[in-house]
């Protein structure tokens, strides 16, 4: 695994840890309040495996991280993020490119739909993964920047999904305006990845593995 991938993982996990309170609050609003802690537990477990991950290929590392999520997180996030990572690890070309990532994400979305029986539009992280996948499939200029924006916007947009139909429809007006916690986590992860891909590649590896 390359040092910049190493850094990317560190950033993606750290942002979850840093946002634990926000994610907790989101899940308290419409759920059971454990999402922040779940994501932090998984992130810490992955950070604890950075030695092992360093010796693995990107695909192996994704699989390892996915299995780690499954065996340490529990809840919905464990299987969901676990399946996401494992499926990406199975389908991503090494070295990765936008088209390959789009295909792998498509496979992941399908796997998640099979696993959790949720559809796009039902206020889950699928509502972030789906538009991001479509953007990647289209490709084009400044893709990293646009993916980042798309992810955050899509997460925000889940707030409006409550009032419509979907798994949270019974909440009606009461859930209106509340962002789906898993969607927010997904956006945070994607955002962190995009930022570290956009960062100057000149940074010292030693400073990346803090």
């Amino acid at each position: 695994m390359k040092p910049d991938t190493h850094n990317l993982i560190r950033c993606a996990t750290q942002t979850l840890i840093d946002h634990v309170d926000e994610l907790t609050a989101l899940d308290q609003a419409i759920g059971d309040g454990d999402h922040g802690l779940n994501m932090r537990r998984g992130a810490l477990a992955i950070q604890g495996k950075q030695g092992e991950l360093a010796g693995q290929s990107l695909n192996e590392a994704l699989r390892t991280m996915g299995m780690t999520c499954m065996s340490t997180i529990g809840g919905s996030s464990g299987p969901v993020f676990g399946t996401l990572l494992v499926t990406l690890g199975k389908h991503l070309p090494d070295p990765p490119n936008a088209a390959g990532l789009a295909q792998a994400l498509d496979a992941a979305i399908q796997a998640l739909t099979r696993l959790g029986k949720a559809q796009v539009g039902q206020k889950t992280l699928l509502d972030v993964l789906d538009p991001v996948q479509k953007l990647l499939a289209k490709g084009g200029e400044e893709l990293v920047k646009r993916v980042r924006t798309c992810a955050f916007d899509a997460a925000e947009a889940t707030a409006a999904l409550d009032a419509a139909r979907g798994r949270a429809s019974f909440l009606g007006d009461r859930a209106l305006g509340h962002v789906d916690p898993g969607s927010r986590s997904t956006a945070l992860i994607i955002g962190a990845i995009c930022e570290s891909l956009d960062a100057p590649a000149t940074a010292q590896p030693s400073s990346l593995s803090a």
Partner: peptide, 11 residues
């Protein structure tokens, strides 16, 4: 037993 309010893992 999972964590508080969190399903246990398949393991």
């Amino acid at each position: 037993p999972g964590q508080i309010f969190t399903s246990p893992t398949p393991d």
